[in-house]
Nucleic acid binder design. Sequence first.
DNA 1: TGATCTCCGATCAATATGGTCGTACTAAGA
DNA 2: TCTTAGTACGACCATATTGATCGGAGATCA
Lengths: 157, 157
Amino acid sequence: MLKISKKADYALMALQHIASVQFGDVTPGRVVNTKEIAEEYNIPLELLAKVLQVLSKQGLIESHNGPKGGYLLARSARQITIAQIIESIEGPLAITDCSHEKDGDFCMQREHCNIRTPLLKIQDSIYQLLNNMTLGDMMGGTPLITIQSPSAQGVER
Amino acid sequence: MLKISKKADYALMALQHIASVQFGDVTPGRVVNTKEIAEEYNIPLELLAKVLQVLSKQGLIESHNGPKGGYLLARSARQITIAQIIESIEGPLAITDCSHEKDGDFCMQREHCNIRTPLLKIQDSIYQLLNNMTLGDMMGGTPLITIQSPSAQGVER
DNA sequence: TGATCTCCGATCAATATGGTCGTACTAAGA
DNA sequence: TCTTAGTACGACCATATTGATCGGAGATCA
Ligand code: FES
Ligand code: FES
């Protein structure tokens, strides 16, 4: 039902946490280790570890080895979008499994499919939505989503 | 990865088909039976049947029994939104599994969860998106989604 | 050198999903 | 009224995805 996976969920929490530590008034620039996050949010340690590994491989965070090691944001919180985070974990956003189909075209219904185009548009809109929101936005009390309410003039209802 | 289930996919195709038959120039008001749709779009017959049953139980389409039976839209194509169709099949839209949590609150991370509010906003936006688009919109060549482009100023990247 | 971290790959269990079958019920038409 | 073409319904299995676990290897610092 259009659900985000738990791993991606954890990724969001973790990044959010790291960001708030780095940006925070106390000990800015401090590295955060896996255990700290896992305990804070009740996330299974090993699973979180794996998630963080992926994130670092994708270049969203930097890892520092050895004792006193841990993770650090690779860039500013305002330059990391929700879309990037989710896609790092779950792969490219695909609302239907034939969204990003190669020319090979293995979708049985493709030939007469009457809903492909509109669905792709929807997918695109969702992507925009996720890509317009950054980690920074999630932290601050700043207005989060600019799409729906007043800006939705032009569209009805 | 934020995917729509195949069943919902089939539901969309089927409704779209029924709508286009009813709205079409030829044989308007004709009932459409399961087999016809299944063959047209290469959908496994029994599965489609089950999907249609659910849709009719949800009141989106009417079923007519017996020979020469089949399905008919219950209301105008413009009054059926994509959100309604998808939710009929997959249940209420929940971007994360603790979205619609009762007060019982079984989510382990709820206590310190730092991403709940923003995620709920995103979910809401997606819902708006799906609920602003009707079957009618999908059929006609009318501009489908009006949300993204202009309103997305303000934030960007 | 040893303790404390991250890194990586393999693996298992639970759940959700896609798909199938068999039977009962209903209405049209011969 | 009997047959037939259709839906209604529920149980069922197979497979894919996801969540979660384990074990060891490599790095860094005291
Ligand atoms: S479902 Fe694959 S192309 Fe429409
Ligand atoms: S994940 Fe359940 S409340 Fe945030």
